[in-house]
Each structure stands twice: as C-alpha cells, then as structure tokens.
Nucleic acid binder design. Structure first.
Lengths: 349, 349
DNA sequence: TGACAACATTGGAACGTTCCAATTATTAAA
DNA sequence: TTTAATAATTGGAACGTTCCAATGTTGTCA
C-alpha cells in the first residue's frame, strides 16, 4: 500500500463499480445514483485517493489545466508582491492554482520560466514583464492561443490584454497639486526613458505643465535609475541647475525617498524647503518621516482585475485583447508641503 | 496547424525516425547518433514543438514531476516574499519550477492549496506554515513520501525537516547588548505566546537576563499581536508599570516600529529616552528614522537553504528529517541608543 | 405484452510521453 | 567468411484519466 498510488481503478474495484462511474462521481455528474455516489466517495476517503490532474488534462487536452502562470519582475518589491497576492486571491477562489516565478528583471530567466510554464500546460498567463520585454517574447503564447494579460507595464506592440495604472493622469494630478501650492519650477525626476511607463508619465507631466500655464523646461526632466540611489543622484543634478526647481514629481516612491535623502544631504528639508511627490504609495510612504505625498495605485486591486480578466478570457475560449487602465488618486501627506505644521503653511521667504 | 498541438509523433514523422528516437533526443541520451539528433532538434524548432511534461510524468509515475510547492503564510510581508525569492532561485536553477501560494494565515486555505498541489504531483513542499498548523496537517504528505521542509516556523511534532533562525541566540544577543549599554530593566515585547517561535525567543530572553546578572521580572514580558499595532499597545502597558523598563527587545521589527510610535506618542524619543531592539531586519529597518537596531536574519538565505535541503531529499529518494538553524546577527543602529551622536548627530537638548 | 422513454452503468479507445525488449546496421575479432 | 560485440533504432505497452457509444435496468403508457 505504501507503493503505487491509488487510482480510479482501485476505487472502482473496491466500490464494486466501473472506473467510468468513479470518473463520473469525480466530475460531479448528476447521472450517477446518489447511493453509488456516496459509496464511491466513502471508498475514496478510505483509501486516501488523490486525484491525478496530470492524467486528467492529458486526456481532455484542451486548455483545462487549471494552472495559471504568474511571472513577476521583482517579488522583493512590495508593490509586485501585492500584485501577486491580488492575483492569487481570485485565481485560487476560481479553483485554479498559481504558478509563480520571479524574473529579477532578467530577460533570459523570463524566457525560461515562460517556456517552463508552457510545458506544464498553463491555461493562461499574467505577467508584469521584465524591462525591455518585446512583443516577440509573447508571440508564441498568443499564437498557441494562450490568453495573456500584462500588468503594470505594457509591452508595446503585443496583441495582449493589459491592466495598467493611469500613469498620465496620476502625474498630471501631482503636477497640478504642486502648481496649486504656488510652485512654478517643477521637475520630473527618475525612471528610464526607454520604457512605456516613463513615456506615459512624461506625457502627463507635459500636459499638466501646459494646463497650468507653466513654462516647459526640458532641463527639468531628469531620468535616473528608478531606485532610491537614482533619486539621490538626480536631485543632486537638479539642484545644480542655475534656475533650480522648487518641487518635483518623481517616477516612483523609491526615487522620491532618494530625493528626500539627497535634499537632507544638502540641508534642505523635504516638504518645507522643497516639495516632493512620489508614485505608487508603497507601504512605507505613510510611515516615513516626513510622510510621502504620492499617487496611490492599488497593486492588489490591479492583480485582482488582471486575474478576473484572464479568467474571463480563458472561459470565453478566445477573447479580444482588452485594456484596463486602473485609476489612481493623489494622497496628500507631508512631503509636498501642503500639510506643513497642520495648517499654518510655513514657507521661507 | 493552429489546432492540435505538435506531438513527439509529428516530429518523428517529419524527421523520418520513430517516436522512441525523438524521446531519446528529448532526454539527451547518448545512444542516438549525432546526425539524427541534430535533425530531430531542427524539426522540433521548425514545428514549434513544446514538451508535454504532464504526459511525461504520467508515464514515469515516480516523483519526477519537477514541480515543487511553496506555501507562504503572508506574501505581503517582505520577509516572506524574500524567503520565496530565495527558494525560487535555487529551485529554478535546478530545473524545477515553483508552485507558490499564499495562505494569509488561513488554515483552511492552507489545506486547500496543499491538496491542490498534491493533485498536481509536486515532488516536494516548502512551507512557512500558517499559525496553528498542526503535525496532522502534514501527515498525509509525509505518508505519501513527499519530502517537506518547513521554514521560519516550526510545526511541533511533525516529522519533517526545518530551517529556522536561531531565535534563542538572537534575542540573547539583543538583551546582552542592551545590558552592556547599562540597562537594568529590559522588557520583552510582542508575539503570541502560543507559538513555538515565541517560546524560543522567550527562552533566549530568560537565559540572557540570567547571564547578565539581572533580575527576571515576569511583568516585563508583554505578549501582543506581532504587528505594529500590537507594539503600540504593549509599550503603553509597559510604561504604565510602576518600575517601568528603560529598554525592550521586541518580537519582530513590526512590533519594534509600533513601540517607537507608542514612545513618541508619550513624547519619548526612541534611542535617547528608551532603547528598542527589533528582530528580522526588514528592509525598512535601515531606512527608518531613527534607524532600527535589530537582529538580522537573512530570509532569502533561509529560502535558499530550505530549497537546497529539499532538493537533496528529493534526489536522495528517502531522507531523514533534518533541522537547520540559521544563524543571526545583531545589527546596531540607532534605536538602541548606542550610536547616539555618532557623528554630528545634532539633537535638541 | 410490447414499445419507448428515462435513468445508470460500462468497456474500450484515446491523450503524449517513457520504458522495455527486440531488431537492424556497423564494426571488430577470430 | 563467420561470429560476436557494439551502436542505433524501433514498435508496443503502460501511466491515470475522460469521453463516447453502447448496454442494461427500470417504469410508464398504450
């Protein structure tokens, strides 16, 4: 009994029915007599039967594998971990199981894990693509009729569904807020200029500068690595400009934190001497001192939406590429200077 | 060609060999002629063949599924996300693939995902168990001969391998450090007293108090939820004690942050007026103001070790339960008061 | 009683692979 | 030239399930 797993045939034998009947029970068919069903279920419990999904979806070689693949570019980043959790929630409650892999922004690894997932017969894929992922990387998937949803980052040219946050609108709101606080020279700091997300955010920046009647100065656009270190570096460059900015919207919260670090290094206090706005609203944003004013996107919600979209496409058999843009909202805290000292908005001459 | 996936038989036909030969190529057998191998590989590429692992490990019904299950109690928590990343690293480079699920500390969900993983034929399982997981929950796995490694939290009574951090030693070092700074009344704050981890840490606390020649006061042991909120609550209780403590080692960093919040609410500055030591060294610990003195455990390293152990057991076929305790180290930053005025650390009178 | 539903049950073929034993082609030794 | 050994290749059975078409039971109605 230790050797050889219990199969449907063993159950059949023990319950005195045929394997077909057992299979019917397994699938919850209404064709089988209640008495028989009870008996079969009892025997299964008794013998410790475990269903072999591999064998099952070998037969029904359709896309019924009940596995969905999730690939994430950086699980270490709380943002993406939340995304994965959101996906897991809906995927799990739909009776699917999640195949999750981390690529660490490595394209080769991404290719590997996608290949591996295909071999395992995933019936759909949700991915937050590694940087520089190209449409060609997803081509085989869609050719094979496997629904794909990209999240957070778009893959230009790929004919797949996407769930991204409203980057343009978010930055627009951030700039507008800073302008309403009286800032005239507002910088855009951080991000690699070769990404779609960067383009969208810069687009929002330009639109807002125009909408607020400010003058666009290309020198105030300072790309950098989208990390804390990148922020430190970029703010240094920003302050060295002759007509230095007095405020900045940042590519993301990590950059914004770096900007704060850089400001302090020059004896400037974020919020009082220079206004900073981030993007993402990571968990630390609220707890930081001073608390970060930022654009809040709900990564877990995005994960859920992405999963719902994918499941819809899976059950629909064949679905059109669909794009969801997830709305964002400005969360005003302290680094923008608006809530300085609870109202009395102290600002030096 | 759109319909019906490409099988080994299609390849065989197109390459003018038998399916057996193709199979041999797939397995990298040295039995097949170099010319034939090249030809077969070419045809595979041309037809876009994708290996069907499901079919494969149906046949070789051993435990060669190349899937390992990973279940984590809270992916949202950076600590466990790092753990998962560590596991993924070694698992992936060993040619396995990771089935990751999040339980959110929910035992029912944990049971579900484990069942689901079994159905998918995982060849091993790494889990950081949800609270109150019992040995009985793991029983069926080990009975089925599936290697299991628990990480971070032990499951008392279960005959499985484990990788846990050196809780006793970590707290011991923390207390010792505080004592060396002159503190005589050192509290232990946070954690649920019904967990094995709590027991181990309290054990370290008691041992250190004794070793430093201090007096043990049971009132200074203040359990609470292992969260920021729990810390706030517990420090409130601590300060209400007649002979209040002047320092505390905390169950984890979240609690420690809560303690800092609670201190500030009473106009006490962590590090200057009250010394705080955390446990885990989460990413925020370094960046916080003041930076958190804490016991550093390397979750990614633990993940890697757990994965290595599991892979060893898988390849060994049948292995003894083995326990690894991962060493920890004290990282002195600011909240303990040791680095007060470390540089020109200006601070108000 | 026979015919006809409706309900339950069933054997066998298939899914895509691996493994085994058997076969053929090639080379070396006698 | 024959024999033995080696190198390549092969057809079929098996893995555990699902599906299909077929079969066996009833019960109802004329």
């Amino acid at each position: 009994m230790a050797k050889g797993r219990v199969t449907v045939i063993d159950i059949a034998k023990a319950a005195g029915v045929s394997k077909s009947t057992v299979s019917l029970v397994l699938q919850g068919s209404s064709l089988v007599n209640d008495g028989t069903r009870a008996k079969v279920n009892a025997v299964m419990r008794e013998l410790g039967y475990v269903y072999n999904r591999g064998a099952a979806n070998l037969r029904q070689s359709g896309s019924k594998s009940k596995i969905i693949g999730v690939v994430v570019n950086d699980l270490t980043n709380g943002f993406f971990a939340e995304l994965a959790v959101g996906v897991d929630m809906v995927v799990q409650s739909a009776g699917f199981v999640q195949f999750l892999s981390n690529t660490s922004e490595n394209l080769d690894r991404q290719r590997e894990v996608i290949a591996s997932m295909r071999e395992h017969g995933i019936s759909g894929l949700i991915m937050s693509p590694a940087r520089a992922t190209e449409a060609a990387d997803l081509k085989p998937l869609v050719a094979a009729g496997i629904p794909v949803v990209v999240a957070v980052r778009n893959v230009p040219g790929a004919k797949v569904s996407s769930v991204v946050s409203d980057n343009r609108e978010g930055i627009f709101a951030g700039v507008q807020h800073l302008a309403s606080l009286g800032h005239r020279r507002i910088a855009f700091i951080g991000g690699f200029s070769d990404t779609a997300v960067f383009d969208e955010r810069i687009d929002g920046y330009r639109a807002a500068i125009a909408a607020c009647g400010l003058e666009l100065d290309e020198d105030l656009i300072l790309p950098s690595a989208p990390s804390r270190a990148g922020g430190v570096d970029a703010i240094g460059r920003a302050l060295a400009i002759a007509a230095a900015p007095t405020a900045a919207v940042c590519f993301n919260d990590a950059v914004a934190f770096g900007v704060c670090d850089g400001l302090r290094a020059q004896r400037l206090e974020p919020g009082r001497d220079f206004a900073v706005v981030g993007f993402d609203d990571v968990i630390e944003a609220k707890a930081a001192v001073p608390a970060l004013t930022t654009i809040s996107v709900d990564p877990q919600g995005m994960g859920r939406r992405a999963a719902q979209l994918l499941l819809k496409q899976i059950s629909a058999g064949r679905a059109e590429a669909e794009s969801i843009v997830s709305s964002v909202r400005l969360v005003v805290r302290e680094t923008c200077g608006a809530n300085q000292a609870g109202g009395s908005n102290r600002r030096q001459a």
